[in-house]
Design a protein around this nucleic acid. Sequence first.
DNA 1: ATGAAAGCGCTAACAT
DNA 2: ATGTTAGCGCTTTCAT
Lengths: 364, 364
Amino acid sequence: MADDNPGARPRGRRRQAVTIKHVAADAGVSLQTVSRVINDGANVSPEMKTRVQSSIDKLGYVPSIAAQRMSGSRSYLILALNDRDRTIADWSSRQGVDWVDQMLLGGMLKCAELGYRMMIELVDTHNDHVERELRATIAALQPDGVILTPPHSDNPLITRLLDDQHIPFARIGSIAAGPGIRMTMDDERAARLATEHLIELGHRRIGFVSGSGEYSLSQWRVDGWKAAMAAAGLNIRDLLAEGDFSFASGERAARHLLGLRDPVTAIIASNDQMALAALDVAREQGLSVPADLSIISFDDTPIVHFAVPTLTAIDQPIAATASRAVELIIDAQRGTDLPDQPVVIPAALVRRQSTGPAPNPSPR
Amino acid sequence: MADDNPGARPRGRRRQAVTIKHVAADAGVSLQTVSRVINDGANVSPEMKTRVQSSIDKLGYVPSIAAQRMSGSRSYLILALNDRDRTIADWSSRQGVDWVDQMLLGGMLKCAELGYRMMIELVDTHNDHVERELRATIAALQPDGVILTPPHSDNPLITRLLDDQHIPFARIGSIAAGPGIRMTMDDERAARLATEHLIELGHRRIGFVSGSGEYSLSQWRVDGWKAAMAAAGLNIRDLLAEGDFSFASGERAARHLLGLRDPVTAIIASNDQMALAALDVAREQGLSVPADLSIISFDDTPIVHFAVPTLTAIDQPIAATASRAVELIIDAQRGTDLPDQPVVIPAALVRRQSTGPAPNPSPR
DNA sequence: ATGAAAGCGCTAACAT
DNA sequence: ATGTTAGCGCTTTCAT
């Protein structure tokens, strides 16, 4: 023990200021005991625990994550994987899409609460090297858990890899069978809610603009709309317009729905951009919203507040979902039993100005 | 008897799949040689390098950051420190403030390009424990560099701590003398640009709504406006209204400026929220923008696109600044000479619909 | 309940 | 130009 001289060493390289050794020396115990206290391990007498803890506090000791990870313990790191192209496009276009912010709001704060950190990583689904790329990221970072967002949540290359490596992970927006914790905001129910809201307002011709087929939630939303329409005995023929989440596709879809021989009096769009496009088309055709046309959007990103009129929308509880995902992942890591069924964090309908009573049938 | 099963993996612990050892064995060389190849070190013969590299590729080897950090090398981690309360407020309110996104867009992509990662950390400036908190974060993460954003950029507790620990860091939005790389978007010049734009349009009564005094850039913006006004020989008496970046303070300020005996015909607000407030007050008073009143905002967050009319604004090049900050920090780490003067990434004026010719003096 | 010893994967310092 | 030897700070075994 004479070889440990924790006091002296101001050299060029940056080393840990206070290490477990300093604490052990200060408390007059072995490294092992300090380690036990840090990790809340068993077999430590209360007095011992107090003594060590006070040394820790006194010295301001904080364990090095790198060292913890090195010795086969946790990395206290949760990785959130987002679609590369889409995220960069959202950030660059500055249209107010705040998916990543909401993930951080929910996930990062929950992580902090539990002593973990969250890191964002952009992954390109369309890339041939997804697997290689992800494998490299995992090797470099060794995260304790991973949060998958659409469309990664349904990418078998990714889920299989994580499963093989025994890394706990959540699949947001996915209910397909397979490894990982499945999480959904129940898009089908949300679409039903939106449709029912319009039906209650007297609408009969309710058009739906779908999202990109790459996201399975697109289909769920269509399904919810169909179900609500069917339950009300309403015809949906010609009322489903395909979109791909882009503004342009929303315009096309809106033109189609408003150009029908028996035009729609309400449009549900699978995201805000397409809803905004519908609003534009309505304005262009001299239709007033909501007097002549009601519009509901999915996502509830910031723009819905600034649209004129403000948009009735399905609010996606992204922050809540990310927060729950973190909890579940950490549970999983600790060996707690995991939910077998998909975890549902239900989305809600927020009523604003863009929906109103169906217009009276125009006289022919 | 503990019957060992050599084939079975230990349950909980995850170890590196491919380590430097595997590569060394495969290539038939020492660990050190592999290490040299990884780190692009000197003293490796070309053939050797090729041989090792092909083993690395074959095995899909990626160095463990934890191990690299442990052995006194880099952590390949850059930490971006944001104001806790403000960031959470922005995320929660969902008003489209995308400062963090822009930081990620610029910083994260540049990091990725250079083999680094970026992590966001929220720090509470008003907290007594800033120092303890930050010290803990550094001990846990051991970042290779730190990016400070306002108001942290001017917090001596933080800058001193980082300087003491010899951690390279950038101070975005700060030009005060002191350690660290100073970076500015030249707010004064930006305010001058905005003011000059209005003067060119014939405005003489140009009001200015300042931001919170906690941010030194607030004063710079005021200075720029004053300078431009003085250069044009215009009186600024009563034309400076104090705000604090909040919508409410923007409303108060706008009421003051429009309620003067000789009211303003143009308002420059120190951020988007306050500009939006001015727009509201104008509408409320029956003033048309830009016919009766011109408005310019700072920040250029997404909402400027959705306001009616769209807002002429000073665009803050946050992404570009974060990107440059990363470069400079990594340079600093490598011992490259650092800029002695503040690094300027100039903001630009984006002309939209909210500014127009000054109205003709109303007949008395 | 506590301690001692053996690494984890990697790099710096010193050989050769 | 390459290999060898010590650790880095921590958590496992495994003793006591």
